[in-house]
Amino acid sequence: MDNQGKKTQNRGFEFSGEKTSKPNQAQASEQNSGFQFETTTTSGSSENPPPNPEPQAQSNQPNFMQQKLPNSGGILAMGIISIVAFCCCWGVIGIALGIISIVLSVKAERTYRENPDLFTLGSYKNMRAGKITAIIGLSISAVWAISSIIIIASGADILNLNESIQELNEFIQDPGY
């Protein structure tokens, strides 16, 4: 318990350690460890918690023990880059980025569902936004890839219209028989 408390104290006060004054540090860490490890017997930590030196700073960062979801920033970045990547290279890069981002976000959502208390809410929101943007980017790039394949397959008829009209005119003027 003591070792765990020290560990959480070290981890927790990386972010807000300089704001809290030193004499209250031990009490604050004890209180935090009480919140963090709910399965352990709450001895003395839950009964009459000492007044916080800075309650606003504590309430602004209630999740500083929690980790970020794995790859949440990467999921968001890939989902957003997929809209730019669909413009070039026939939409292949957009499709690839969208699929990678969706797969990673499904994995990350599963790990978040298993124990939501371990991860920060901000990274979960990032993951959701990344999933939505990846779905949009993937659908747009897929539509673009399919339509470009159709355009190329039928390209001789549609796109070389002027040339084919010219050839037709030449053929009419000089049929060659």
């Binding site: 920033g73 968001l76 970045a77 989902g79 957003i80 809209i83 901000g122 929101k125 990032n126 959701r128 936004a129 939505i132 943007t133 949009i136 980017g137 747009i140």
Partner: peptide
Amino acid sequence: LLIFHLIFNFKDGAKYLKFSFIITS
């Protein structure tokens, strides 16, 4: 917005990013 959000972690950054992404696309 994406770069600043990944660095500074805005509070509602994911929502704004979503909206600006949809508008851009």
